[in-house]
Design a binder for these strands. Structure first.
Lengths: 231, 231
DNA sequence: ACCTGAACACCGTTCAAGT
DNA sequence: ACCTGAACACCGTTCAAGT
């Protein structure tokens, strides 16, 4: 082989998955098709099947890549002197930084059909930090359920921002305020008293941390009630 | 028209959406295609476009049907004497009963692109019950974020049950316990000390309620700290 | 072992045509 | 206004064939 020429490395599972992730980051999850991923790699669609068993496995693998990135990111979270909620908090906020860079990942992780090695590693790390702080096995179990996908940094928003639509006229706003009084007052407060902007009205990161702290505080309280060492 | 013959009512948006929901309940979300829904209604695929603007609108509409069902279900939740966390708790657990009957809905609600009337109604109802109990507008706002999709009764599980796979042999279990010590001890406790069963190991409903109560307790504590009326 | 090309059975959606 | 049929531009996946 010519050592000066750019080596065209053969396909591999990893190269396929990374290309799929790159495509999703750039053009959204809908752009990830077997044919498109192959084309991007300069190869025929059928070649992918030698490294990935099908479309479902490709999507699972993409989730795996993101979680592996999360694991790498949070490995460096180390504040041994801090009390445990700070440790767990920093771990989860680290995961969130990674997850925010891959907005398509939430859907994928939610629809995942397999539990892969990276996910086990992440939850063992997170759970281990709780155990070392003195939380009981049972409480760690509850904590995982209470956190849910929030443990990986995902928000569970029901009103997504982005599709704001045209601004509403005054009459429509008044009609909505009459029909949905509570939402109207919440929107008015959150949007700095501009009731027309009902979407994209708040600081997602601050709200994520509020919810996270609520859960961590609650877990600490359960631990204290059980007579555990708080930190 | 012959009054004895079964009237073949023309298509309508509602008939289309209900048929799509029926299909998803029976055969999963993947079975919901424009062509299949049409076939089931004894009509050509193109006819659907007169009542629904496309596939995305069909999926949005299916989420709408489920949320409408939730709204109908929780309208009857009335325990005026109970303190507010019980009111909110009963509302959310009512929503959960509906949602559990449509396991495909979680994905759909998460990927929804529009905020429809039924969703606004639900959150106005839920928020209104908090407001009437004395929670501040700001706290109701935080509560919505903290609850996230849990407000509608969705769990946010990361390890889904169902794809249990073949039972693991003793050597594999030992290897996993060495690699993932925390997960191993959690699994061992939760599964009644049978470490081979790492999935489907616990009571989903109880865990959902644990997490919900953690959040409701936390909200109550924030309210009390702010000097609000706890009842 | 890895990659290809043609083919199959599906999709969502357009368009012009029917009534 | 509502529904149809044919067609278009895509999908994921199979299969037999190449090297």
């Amino acid at each position: 082989v010519d050592r000066a020429a750019p080596t065209r490395p053969g396909l591999s599972r990893d190269r396929v998955l990374r290309e799929a992730v790159r495509l999703a980051d750039a053009h959204g999850l809908a752009a990830v098709t077997m044919r498109r991923v192959a084309e991007e790699l300069g190869v025929e669609a059928m070649s992918l099947y030698h490294h990935v068993s099908g479309k479902a496995a490709l999507l699972d693998g993409m989730a795996e890549v993101v979680v592996r990135e999360v694991v790498a990111r949070v490995a460096t979270v180390q504040e041994p002197e801090a009390p445990w909620p700070g440790q767990v908090r920093a771990t989860i906020l680290g995961a969130r930084e990674v997850v925010l860079a891959h907005p398509w990942a939430a859907t994928l992780v939610a629809g995942r059909t397999t539990v892969d090695e990276s996910l086990l590693t992440y939850f063992d790390t997170l759970g281990g930090r709780m155990r070392r702080a003195g939380l009981s096995v049972d409480l760690v179990h509850h904590a995982m359920h209470a956190l849910g996908s929030r443990a990986l940094g995902f928000s569970q928003e029901l009103f997504e921002e982005g599709d704001d639509g045209p601004p509403l006229d005054e009459a429509t706003v008044a009609a909505m305020a009459a029909r949905y009084p509570t939402i109207a007052e919440v929107a008015a407060l959150a949007a700095g008293h501009d009731p027309a902007s009902t979407i994209g009205w708040c600081d997602d990161q601050a709200e994520f941390e509020f919810g996270l702290d609520l859960i961590l505080d609650g877990l600490g309280r359960v631990q204290a009630r059980a007579g555990g060492d708080p930190g």
